[in-house]
Amino acid sequence: MFTELCNQIFSQSIRDYHVHNDVYQHIVNPYEKSSIEHLLYLKNWIDTVQWHLEDIIRNPAIDPVKALEIKRWIDRSNQERTDVVEYIDSYFLEQYKGVQPLPDAKINTESPAWAIDRLSILALKIYHMLEEATRTDATAEHRAACQRKLDILLEQRRDLGTAIEDLLTDIAAGKKYMKVYKQMKMYNDPSLNPVLYGSSK
C-alpha cells in the first residue's frame, strides 16, 4: 500500500536526521530525483528540520537575533514544505489523469498529498513520543503517560493510513476527484504582505 511506503520512508528520513541531530546538516536523499520516494524523503526531512527549529526557538534563553534568524528560517521551510506537497499532488494528478470521474463524484476535503503531510508529522510525533516513553532518566509516571499518548498516535496513524488508501481507491475508481489549489501564501510575497510593501513607501 502507498501509505506503507510513506511510513517506511518517513521513518528512514527521521532516523537519518538523528544520526547527527543537527539542523545545519545537509540532506543526503538516497532516492532517484525523479521518483516519488525522493519527494517523500524530502518532505519528511523538511518537516524533521522544522520540528527541531521549533524546539530551538522556544528556548526562553535564546538570543533575540538568533530567534529572528530561526523564525525566518521557519518561514522559508513552510514555503518549501508547501511546494513539495504540491509536487506530490502533481504525481497523483499524473497517476489518475486517465480516470473519468463518475457523474456523482465528489471532491475530498483535502488532497492526497495534504493528508500525506499529516502522516509525515505523525511519524515525527511517534518517534519523539517513543523517546519520551523509554527515557531512562524520567519517572515511571512520565513514561507511562507518554506510552498512553504513543498508543493513541499509533492508532491515529493506522486510521489516517486507512483513510488515505480509501481516498486513493475512490479517486482511481472515479468516485472522487482531486484538485490542486496552489497555496496562496501571503506573508512571503512583497506585493501581498502589508508590512513588506508598506516598508517600501
Rank of each mutant, 00 (worst) to 15 (best):
Glu110Ile: 12
Leu93Gln: 10
Asn108Thr: 03
Lys97His: 14
Tyr87Leu: 11
Pro112Asp: 03
Met129Thr: 15
Glu131Tyr: 15
Ile116Thr: 00
Ala113Lys: 04
Glu132Arg: 13
Pro101Met: 14
Ile107Phe: 03
Asp104Pro: 05
Gln100His: 13
Arg135Asp: 08
Glu131Ile: 03
Leu119Gly: 00
Trp114Arg: 12
Asp89Phe: 02
Lys125Phe: 15
Glu131Ser: 07
Phe92Thr: 02
Pro103His: 04
Glu94Gly: 01
Trp114Val: 13
Phe92Val: 01
Ala133Asn: 01
Thr136Gln: 14
Leu124Trp: 07
Pro101Cys: 05
Ser120Cys: 13
Ala133Tyr: 01
Ala133Trp: 04
Ser120Ile: 06
Asp137Ile: 10
Tyr91Gln: 01
Leu124Ser: 12
Pro101Phe: 09
Ser90Leu: 10
Ser111Lys: 05
Lys125Ile: 08
Gly98Lys: 08
Phe92Pro: 03
Phe92Tyr: 13
Ile126Pro: 12
Thr136Glu: 13
Gly98Trp: 09
Val99Cys: 06
Lys106Trp: 03
Ile107Arg: 09
Ile126Asn: 10
Tyr91Lys: 02
Lys97Tyr: 08
Glu131Arg: 13
Thr134Cys: 05
Lys97Ile: 05
Ser111Arg: 07
Ser90Asn: 09
Phe92Asp: 00
Ile116Trp: 00
Lys125Tyr: 15
Arg135Ala: 15
His128Glu: 09
Ile88Glu: 00
Pro112Leu: 02
Ser111Met: 03
Ile107Ser: 09
Leu130Asn: 14
Gln100Asp: 12
Leu122Lys: 06
Lys97Val: 06
Ile107Thr: 10
Tyr87Ser: 09
Leu102Ile: 01
Thr136Gly: 09
Ser90Trp: 00
Asp117Thr: 08
Gly98Asn: 14
Thr109Ser: 13
Asp137Glu: 12
Glu94Tyr: 04
Ile121Trp: 07
Leu102Tyr: 01
Ala105Gln: 00
Thr136Asn: 11
Leu122Tyr: 11
Ser90Arg: 11
Ala123Phe: 02
Asp117Phe: 10
Ala115Gln: 03
Tyr96Ala: 00
Tyr91Gly: 00
Thr134Arg: 10
Ala105Ser: 08
Leu102Ala: 06
Ala115Asp: 07
Glu132Gly: 11
Tyr87Thr: 03
Asn108Glu: 13
Leu119Val: 05
Lys106Gly: 04
Gln100Leu: 14
Ala133Met: 04
Ile121Asp: 07
Arg118Trp: 07
Arg118Thr: 09
Gln95Ala: 06
Ile121Cys: 09
Gln100Cys: 08
Ile121Pro: 01
Tyr91Arg: 00
Met129Leu: 08
Gln95Arg: 15
Asp104Phe: 08
Val99Thr: 09
Tyr127Gln: 11
Glu132Asp: 12
Leu119Phe: 10
Arg118Gly: 02
Arg118Val: 02
Asp89Ile: 02
Thr136Tyr: 05
His128Leu: 04
Leu130Pro: 00
Ala105Gly: 02
Glu132Ser: 10
Pro112His: 05
Ile116Leu: 07
Asp104Trp: 07
Asp89Thr: 03
Glu110Met: 15
Met129Val: 08
Gln100Val: 10
Ala123Ile: 10
Trp114Ile: 05
Glu132Leu: 14
Thr136Pro: 04
Pro101Glu: 06
Thr134Glu: 14
Thr109Val: 06
Glu94Cys: 06
Ala113Phe: 01
Leu93His: 09
Gln100Ala: 11
His128Arg: 04
Leu124Phe: 14
Asp89Met: 06
Ser90Pro: 05
Ala123Trp: 14
Asn108Gly: 11
Arg135Ser: 12
Arg118Asn: 15
Met129Trp: 09
Ala133Thr: 05
Glu110Gly: 03
Ile88Lys: 08
Ile107Gly: 03
